[in-house]
């Protein structure tokens, strides 16, 4: 599984961090950090994170980790 986040769209809503804290996190200045190649077991959570992103900045795709 591969994750990309369009950081030009990200507005630090935090919904992805709530939905998938194993993949997404903030530093203390609210800048998003994420695991671009998480384990496939986290797929449901990754897709939930993409679905709840208010600015649709997250793309989840299959592929080599």
């Amino acid at each position: 599984m591969h994750i990309t986040v369009d950081m030009n769209l990200c507005e630090s809503h935090g919904q992805c961090v709530f939905a998938a804290p194993d993949i997404f996190s903030f530093d203390d200045e609210d800048y998003l950090a994420y695991d671009a190649a998480p384990a496939d077991a986290l797929r449901d959570r990754a897709e939930k994170a993409a679905a709840v992103c208010p600015v649709r900045a997250i793309t989840v795709s299959a592929g080599a980790s």
Partner: peptide
Amino acid sequence: IGRTARLAAYR
């Protein structure tokens, strides 16, 4: 405001 990082623990 400017501290979204801290919301996860509250949530």
